[in-house]
Amino acid sequence: MLYHIKVLVFLKDGVLDTQGKAVLGSLHRMNYTDLKDIRIGKYLQLWVEASDEDTARNRVKAMCSDLLVNNLIEDYTIEVDELS
């Protein structure tokens, strides 16, 4: 089975998101005063061959902890789509 896996990586609460802060400032200057906060993250798409969804999910979790995510500053969520 081929699985399409979407990983959202975002900075943990308490970690200064310099990009988010800059964008927030810009949007406020453009009068979007209703905007209270913005945090900027990363969106990764992976295509993984695996026997079942759990296996695919676990493989991607391992990739996240080994390289894709720095758990000191980042958190992530995983979403899995079955392709074929």
Binding site: V15, L16, T18, Q19, A22, N70, L72, I73
Partner: peptide, 16 residues
């Protein structure tokens, strides 16, 4: 720091 030989992490400069 990424190899965890040292504590902490280095993020984008405050002025981006």
């Amino acid at each position: 720091t990424e190899a965890r030989l040292l504590p902490g992490a280095l993020l984008a400069n405050k002025n981006l």
